[in-house]
Structure formats: structure tokens, C-alpha cells
């Protein structure tokens, strides 16, 4: 009896002595959500048995956690370029397991276009989703935006927006379908699109992403309007953004949330040195 009690007490003392350094070690262990290696979708399909939707959802959540972690790091001025290739691979795997998973399409659309500039890939994925989610107006809405804004394929854009309009019954998409037939008002349309995305977003990391981009595009729009006013008054295009500020057409001076500088191209188009993305993202292959 004595022996049992004493050995128990020794173990307890050791436990107390150990638990503090043990938990400190775990707490200080850097939190890195790695995307890691995911086996082929065919293998996953077989192993997932009747939990394909669950496996798909967990792949999407994995990507989301990873991305959320990076956004948090960027807040603390630690720039880690996201592994977009793995992110895309995981999301493509997710929709093969569950072709109805909206989160996957939505998230892929978020980064495949602005950040990675894989417009064709994004639209192929959306086309695949449209075969299944036949009721969903978001997918043609996204595809329409990609076609017009990035790929300048206005015929395709009009077709997608037509479909989005029919499915949603809302006038917004129909309006866009008409407007995308001509190559004007791109910035305003980007603002409409981003506002729609930002409004429905609950994930803080993604919402912040949209808000930043939206701010940048609102600034661009402000410069464009100032340019128009300048041309109406002076009869010529302004040479620089600073000219607009100095002569009182643009107040306060525009600020690019991505840290770039706005400037005017020879034809009066407003562009920014940041290209609407943070510096660390630019070099990602």
C-alpha cells in the first residue's frame, strides 16, 4: 500500500514539474498551418467512403485556415508569400469530391484571378461548377466578371451575365450584361463586383482582402472622375495625378492601400505601381 501511494505521489510531483515546461513548449511552438501533401483525388475518393462531402469541406477549411494565418502574419508585418499552387490544387480536389461545394468555387475565384492571374483556370472551374449548381447565380456572375474585366471577352461576359440575371432575377446582373458590351466604366464595375463580394463575406481575413481592394478601386475611381472634370474644364488631359491635386481637382490626395503610387498613362488611364496587390505577392510564381 505504502509503495503504491509513494509511487503515485512521485508521479504526481513529476507531472506538476513537467506540465509547465511542456505546455510552454506547445504554446510557443509556431503555429503554421501547412497545406502539405494531399493524395490523389481518386485515392481520396476511395478512402473517403461515404464521407466525400466531409473530406471536401475539410480540404476547403484547411486552405482557409492556412490563408487566414498568412493574413494575420501580414498584419504583423511578416510577409509570407502564399502557396497559391497548393491552394488551387486542394480546392480543385475538393470540387472533384463534392462538385456542389460552394466555398471551394468562391474561394478559388477570390485568389485565382486578382492574385495569380489564372483567369482561364478560374473560369474552367466555374464552368465545371455550373454543371452541378444549376440554380446558383454566383458562379456565372463570377465568370462574367472574369471574362469582361480580365479577359476582355465581352461576348462571353454578356452570356454569363445573362445567365446570372435569369437565375437571380435581379437587375444587377442584367444591367452588367448590357454594360459589359462596351469597354468602358471598368473601374465602376469592379467596384460593383467587389461590393457584392464584400457584403456577403463573414470570414474576417477574406473580408479584409475585399475591403482593401475596394478602397483601392474607389481611389482609382476618384482620380478618374477628377480627370474627366479636368478635361471638361481645360480641354486637355492632365499629365500627372499631382497636377490634379495641385490644381484643386482632387482633394485629399489619393492613397493606395497597397502602398503603391497612382500615376496616369499617356491615354489618361489611371494605374498604380502596386498593381492592386501587396509587394510580397507579386513575385509568387
Amino acid at each position: 500500500m505504502m509503495r503504491t501511494v509513494s509511487s503515485g505521489i512521485v508521479c504526481l510531483i513529476l507531472y506538476v514539474a513537467l506540465i509547465i515546461p511542456f505546455t510552454t513548449y506547445l504554446k510557443n511552438k509556431p503555429f503554421v498551418e501547412k497545406l502539405g501533401y494531399v493524395p490523389s483525388v481518386t485515392a481520396l475518393k476511395a478512402v473517403a467512403a461515404d464521407h466525400k462531402e466531409l473530406v471536401a469541406a475539410s480540404l476547403v477549411l484547411k486552405v482557409l485556415m492556412y490563408f487566414g494565418g498568412l493574413v494575420e502574419k501580414a498584419d504583423n508585418q511578416v510577409a509570407v508569400p502564399p502557396d497559391y499552387i497548393s491552394m488551387s490544387r486542394l480546392l480543385h480536389g475538393a470540387v472533384k469530391l463534392d462538385p456542389y461545394n460552394m466555398d471551394a468555387y468562391y474561394f478559388a475565384q477570390g485568389f485565382l484571378t486578382w492574385d495569380v492571374k489564372q483567369f482561364k483556370l478560374a473560369n474552367d472551374l466555374l464552368d465545371y461548377g455550373m454543371k452541378y449548381r444549376t440554380w446558383d447565380w454566383y458562379l456565372p456572375f463570377f465568370a462574367g466578371f472574369n471574362s469582361a474585366y480580365f479577359m476582355k471577352d465581352y461576348a462571353a461576359a454578356a452570356r454569363y451575365y445573362q445567365r446570372a440575371g435569369e437565375l437571380s432575377g435581379s437587375d444587377l446582373s442584367k444591367l452588367l450584361a448590357g454594360r459589359y458590351m462596351q469597354e468602358s466604366g471598368q473601374t465602376e464595375l469592379a467596384i460593383v463586383y467587389l461590393s457584392a463580394m464584400e457584403n456577403g463575406e463573414r470570414n474576417p481575413a477574406l473580408k479584409k482582402n475585399y475591403q482593401l481592394r475596394l478602397t483601392a478601386f474607389r481611389e482609382t475611381r476618384r482620380i478618374e472622375l477628377a480627370c474627366d472634370r479636368y478635361r471638361e474644364t481645360r480641354g486637355v488631359l492632365p499629365k500627372t495625378v499631382e497636377q490634379l491635386v495641385i490644381e484643386g481637382f482632387l482633394s485629399p490626395p489619393p492613397k493606395d492601400p497597397y502602398g503603391g503610387q497612382f500615376y496616369l498613362e499617356a491615354d489618361g488611364k489611371v494605374v498604380t505601381t502596386s498593381k492592386y496587390a501587396f509587394k510580397n505577392v507579386k513575385n509568387v510564381k
Partner: peptide, 20 residues
């Protein structure tokens, strides 16, 4: 609630998978 666009669908997925 971690889902971006399909919270109800995800809770259905998780419930049905747990039952299964």
C-alpha cells in the same frame, strides 16, 4: 460557421457524416 458561403450545408454535411 467557419464556412464562407454554405454554413447550413456544412452543418448538414457534418451531421450526416457523424451519424454515418
Amino acid at each position: 460557421s467557419l464556412s464562407m458561403r454554405q454554413v447550413t450545408e456544412l452543418s448538414l454535411t457534418l451531421s450526416l457524416s457523424l451519424i454515418s
